[in-house]
Design a protein around this nucleic acid. Structure first.
Length: 533
DNA sequence: TTTATGGTCATCCAGACCGG
DNA sequence: CCGGTCTGGATGACCATAAA
């Protein structure tokens, strides 16, 4: 495939070098690299007037070129760009911005070889602009971006499900046992000594990071193997067996591990080791806790220690001169009090956890598969090996020409809208049902209403959404349309549609209305949605 | 003599900042 | 404005000391 210098298809505007006196708590957000890599990081704000060119709008692509070298799409209110990040201004006649994102991600590793500086890796603007990506014609680009977006969306969906299962675990705990500190269910309280029979601490060894283990090496775990609350067998350092003189504790299935040191936030992270790892052993900062099985279930304890309120109780016992590396002693830990529900309940909880974990394992396996598929798709796409002839991008999406940022007015969009309308006007008209529905609503007893299914015609909805928006606001941000089409409607996932619909219901000028219908056969109410005219 | 504890020092990353 | 260095926080390495 033809290679093109990215400097020829887009302009890269570097962010503004804000000084600390520019920061405040009011005004516009300042986008720093950490805000892109970690959404939980707080923003700095500035009330100063900075030139227009540093403003980033919703949908803008950003490339960080210092330390973290990656590309991000900004989905947020207009904000200022900090130094070390480029804002990408595309030549829309030549390149599709989503295609560009995928193409750059695919080739980003080769960019790091240009990185300069000793303490901190930088990419020099000139080198960056010289970087080449494969560039087929625009329609092909859109098709590639479309396929990859689909794969990406599936991956995200798996990740969401996995996170959801984690949440479910937490709620299951709180539902069964209540908050462990307030102890609203009045469980018998006991000392940690009653449930933990012994604590074994590992031994300190230095080693080489990020490498595979050789024949004559063992891995000493790092705190980070436990930090996230899930055992991570890859977080170790390699140590030559010859150097190991002290007694070590090998990492075995069922071990209940806890970190005795870290920042206050992360101290007392714990997890259960899922299987034997004969080549890994514990470092001095990790404990292996033995549980008195007559009194407690370690799955229960593992969940308990992860509940924020109880974690705080443990954290309070940590000490140290530097806030950045606090320690807990065994005595202090064993001196803590905890609620100890009857073993039967704990076992029941553990069974539920096992079920959720099994679901999670399935989702994780699927996620790995998808990620592999995604990788191979990426590679084939940029080698020009994908059969794009079979790819039909949704007609609606094709109807819109590229618009150079900003807003699409009603007139801009009218030809495309007309085309859509022609296609959809004959569709099963929710319209004709509307009158009957309204009659029914009048007779409803709203107190007895239950949520139910949402009958939903995707194509018709797209048309209605767009038309309504145009009528109501006269113009619509182009990117909003693009996103709807690309992300909300590429698949017919019920939950996604539901999310979308409920978002719409909460809008100031909603295009949906929730209505309630009595089903004569089932003898109960269910909700339906009506598109407002 | 061994182990647990509570540190400090070193390193790396990310951001602050500055000279040309 | 650009390209680089300085600085501080987070984490890992490792140790002196006290207790067992």
């Amino acid at each position: 495939m033809k290679l093109t210098r990215i400097g020829d298809i887009a302009e890269f505007i570097n962010g503004y070098a804000f000084k600390s006196e520019h920061w405040g708590s009011t005004g516009k957000k300042i986008i720093r690299i950490q805000n892109l890599t970690d959404p939980s990081k707080p923003y700095n704000f500035t009330a100063y007037d900075i030139p227009e060119k540093y403003i980033v709008k919703d949908g803008d692509m950003l490339v960080s070129w210092s330390a973290t070298i990656d590309i991000f799409e900004w989905h947020n209110e207009p904000a200022y760009l900090n130094q070390h990040i480029f804002k990408v201004v595309f030549d829309h006649k030549k390149v599709d911005k989503y295609y560009f994102r995928f193409a750059l991600k695919q080739t980003i590793d080769s960019l790091t070889k240009f990185a300069q500086g000793s303490t901190m890796k930088h990419i020099v603007k000139g080198d960056f602009e010289k970087h080449k990506i494969p560039l087929p014609d625009l329609v092909e680009q859109q098709k590639i971006a479309y396929i990859l977006s689909k794969a990406e969306a599936l991956i995200q969906k798996r990740k969401d499900t996995i996170n959801g299962l984690d949440e479910l675990l937490k709620y299951t705990f709180l539902d069964m046992f209540g908050d462990p500190v307030k102890n609203p269910k009045g469980w018998e309280k006991g000392g940690m000594v009653e449930v933990i029979t012994s604590i074994k601490s590992g031994t300190s060894y230095a080693g080489a990071e990020n490498k595979e283990l050789e024949q004559n090496e063992l891995g000493v775990l790092k705190i980070s193997a436990v930090t996230d609350g899930v055992f991570k067998p890859k977080e170790f350092k390699a140590v030559s067996i010859d150097l190991i003189t002290k007694q070590i504790i090998k990492c075995q299935k069922g071990m209940f591990l806890m970190s005795r040191a870290n920042t206050k936030e992360l101290v007392a992270a714990c997890c259960i080791v899922p299987k034997d790892y004969p080549f890994l052993f514990l470092p001095d900062k990790l404990w292996s806790l033995s549980v008195n099985e007559q009194r407690a279930n370690k799955i229960f304890l593992n969940a308990l220690f992860k509940i924020e309120s109880f974690r705080n109780v443990i954290r309070e016992k940590a000490s140290g001169g530097h806030e950045s590396m606090l320690n807990i002693s065994m005595m202090k830990f064993l001196g803590l009090k905890l609620p100890i529900p009857p073993l039967l309940f704990q076992t029941q909880f553990a069974e539920t956890v096992a079920k959720i974990e099994a679901l999670k394992a399935k989702q994780e396996a699927s996620l790995r598969e998808l990620e592999q598929l995604y990788q191979s798709l990426m590679q084939r796409a940029f080698k020009g090996e994908l059969d794009l002839d079979k790819v039909e991008i949704e007609d609606v999406y094709k109807g819109f020409e590229y618009f150079d940022g900003g807003f699409v007015t009603f007139d801009d969009a009218k030809p495309a809208l007309d085309k859509i309308r022609e296609k959809f006007e004959t569709l099963p008209a929710i319209k004709s049902k509307d009158k009957k529905l309204i009659e029914k609503i009048k007779k409803l007893d709203l107190d007895k209403v239950q949520l139910g299914r949402i009958p939903f015609d995707k194509d018709y909805a797209i048309y209605r959404v767009l038309y309504h928006r145009f009528e109501h606001y006269q113009s619509v941000p182009f990117l909003t349309i693009y996103d709807w089409l690309l992300t909300d409607f590429v698949d017919l996932d019920y939950n996604k549609i539901k999310d979308f619909v409920f978002r719409e219901l909460n809008e100031e000028a909603p295009i949906f209305e929730q209505i309630f219908i009595f089903n004569e056969d089932e003898k109960k109410y269910r909700t339906e949605l009506k598109l407002l005219l």
